[in-house]
Amino acid sequence: MNKPISMRDRILNATAAILVEYGTQASMSKIAARAGVSAGSLYNYFESKDVLLRAVYENLAEAMIHALTANADPQAPAPQRLEHYIDSYISFIWSDPNRAILFEL
């Protein structure tokens, strides 16, 4: 059974999707509508748009770090570690092509 997604995560996911569509000029009202909450509710979780955008990129960075370090062998020779890193990076980006757009913003 799937764990219900928290309101904070719904807002973060909606923000990432809106960023892909509209860029950083996306309005809080568009984000709220995508998340299915009132614009005022956003401020219960994030004090400003800047804080919300920072949280989106912090989540993205955490996911990337996890993807790049999962199954990495610190004892492997450097060329093998580099190859693992590059393969993991490519897999991470292309598992969700919108991530590449988020990295451009």
Rank of each mutant, 00 (worst) to 15 (best):
Q75W: 07
K49I: 04
S38Q: 13
N13R: 11
Q80W: 13
D50V: 15
I86F: 06
E21M: 12
P74M: 13
Y43L: 03
L53N: 05
I90S: 09
A35G: 02
N98K: 10
S29R: 12
P74Q: 13
A14W: 04
Q80Y: 13
L82K: 06
G23N: 09
Q25K: 03
S6K: 06
N2G: 04
A33H: 02
M64S: 07
W94R: 04
W94H: 08
A61E: 06
S91K: 04
N71E: 15
A78Y: 11
A39N: 11
L102E: 00
P74V: 12
A14H: 03
A32H: 08
H66T: 13
S38H: 12
S27V: 01
N98M: 11
A72F: 15
F46Q: 00
I101A: 14
G40I: 02
D50P: 04
N13I: 06
E21A: 11
E62H: 14
A35D: 00
G36Y: 03
E62N: 13
A78F: 11
M1I: 13
F103Q: 08
M1Y: 07
L82N: 10
A17G: 00
F103R: 07
S88R: 02
P77G: 05
K30Y: 01
S48Y: 09
W94S: 09
W94L: 12
V37D: 02
L102H: 03
E62D: 10
S38W: 01
K49Q: 02
R54N: 10
Y43I: 00
E47N: 14
Y57N: 01
E62A: 13
Y89I: 00
I31K: 06
V56R: 05
A100T: 08
Y45G: 04
A32N: 07
A33R: 12
H66G: 14
I11F: 11
P97T: 14
E58G: 06
L52K: 10
A17E: 07
I93D: 07
A78D: 13
Y45C: 04
Y85N: 05
T69K: 06
L53E: 05
R54V: 12
A17N: 01
Y57H: 03
T69P: 02
P74D: 13
L19C: 01
V56H: 08
E21Q: 14
D9H: 07
E104Y: 10
L52R: 08
I93H: 07
Y22R: 15
V51A: 09
A26S: 03
A67H: 13
P79N: 15
A76T: 12
V20Q: 01
S88D: 07
K3E: 03
Y45F: 14
A76Y: 13
P74K: 14
A78M: 11
R99T: 03
E83G: 14
Y57F: 15
P4A: 04
A72Q: 14
S48A: 04
N59S: 13
I18Q: 06
S41M: 15
P77W: 00
E58R: 09
K3R: 09
D73C: 10
G40Q: 11
